[in-house]
Write a protein that binds this DNA or RNA. Sequence first.
DNA 1: CTAAAAATTTAGGCTTACCTAAATTAATAA
DNA 2: TTATTAATTTAGGTAAGCCTAAATTTTTAG
Lengths: 217, 217
Amino acid sequence: MPSINVEDYLKHIYYLQEEGDAVTTSSLAGQLNIAAASVTDMVKKLSGQHYLRHLPYRGVQLTEKGRRSALKIIRKHRLWEMFLSEVLHFGWDEIDEEAEKFEHIMSDKMEERIDEVLGFPRVDPHGDPIPAKNGTVKNIRAFPLSDAPEGNSVRVLRVNDANPELLQYVSSIGLSLNKRLSVKQRIKFDKSLIIKIGSKEIAISTVVAENIFVESV
Amino acid sequence: MPSINVEDYLKHIYYLQEEGDAVTTSSLAGQLNIAAASVTDMVKKLSGQHYLRHLPYRGVQLTEKGRRSALKIIRKHRLWEMFLSEVLHFGWDEIDEEAEKFEHIMSDKMEERIDEVLGFPRVDPHGDPIPAKNGTVKNIRAFPLSDAPEGNSVRVLRVNDANPELLQYVSSIGLSLNKRLSVKQRIKFDKSLIIKIGSKEIAISTVVAENIFVESV
DNA sequence: CTAAAAATTTAGGCTTACCTAAATTAATAA
DNA sequence: TTATTAATTTAGGTAAGCCTAAATTTTTAG
Ligand SMILES: [Mn+2]
Ligand SMILES: [Mn+2]
Ligand SMILES: [Mn+2]
Ligand SMILES: [Mn+2]
């Protein structure tokens, strides 16, 4: 059984890998809020246990074993977020932090019970896919709102859950999963957007638009 | 914030204290499954942080600070047991072990939400009182079934939750909280009892009877 | 193609919470 | 009351995960 710390390392390596960039010591250190030297230590340990391969000075890559372990934690994390949201009525912006702890101590039995109670959900409250027990992950076919052309009508499929303040803000302007909106105008100057939600028109910055993922509709 | 280990020490010291015996290094070591020397280490640390007083070679006693901390954990433990039982339909014999982990990572906010969802329960699924937020504990006025006189009609108020096998067994003979039964016969030879539950008569050993707490009815 | 800057690893330490073996103190039995 | 025995503490160690400072390797800019 991997420790809590090992689980968090594997999960963050998986996330970074998903984003396509090389997973470097410093990117990991940044994600985990840990000194680079400490990451090197742990990476050596994980490599010894065949969770990943490490090319010194180059970066790391999960092995199949590492990937499986990471997906188990991510599944628990997202199921727990769902549970907090649906059953205990926690807010969009609170659940990630809570799930960060519970993901490590949830037994497989509890995972199953919760999956059942929730009716076997496929996505978490932020639109991220919940990995299946067999290690399959459906990837969400969505593009960032910041890439939507002017006039386009879209539906929100996912919002980046890494920043509670962003989630808070996105809620506050009336956006949530599956909400429709249209792009009224793209401001060339600062690349911000003017979008229409229901009858309201709102200006949002690129930073925000880059973290909202949509599909054309 | 006390660590997980500190919390478990405080909780077990509280339990031992409740039983009325002196809380010795070895009794603690026994409860926690830890070497006596390790307990001495921790006791010194806890004493330094004013969670308890330690008379070397004599034993320990919780301070007010220590008692409050212990009760907080016990409240979380019992609320979580209740939640596992009522919402996720875990068995009587499984919930203690699960709650052992969750008690340490449940935020105060989650504690409140769960309390609400459950309708502010006063006792846990084993009949143990759930301490109030202000540190009050109602003590259950129950006596061990092993002390019930022949012919007495009683109601089950509490079952010792320390042993999953006992709980399993108690369930299997049709006993649960608030069930009524009567003592048909006390066997002098081995102090076992013959009890009547509904229409069935069952023989139970003293060991079992000592862990079932009842009130006359 | 170098020299400076940036990233990474190594070296040496720290804290928490354990452990075993040895020494000390307390309890008990003759 | 003294000699065993039992309980407790002290001494010396270990493993996990972290840290800072120093060395090393890679990248980048001139
Ligand atoms: Mn985590
Ligand atoms: Mn999420
Ligand atoms: Mn515990
Ligand atoms: Mn209980």
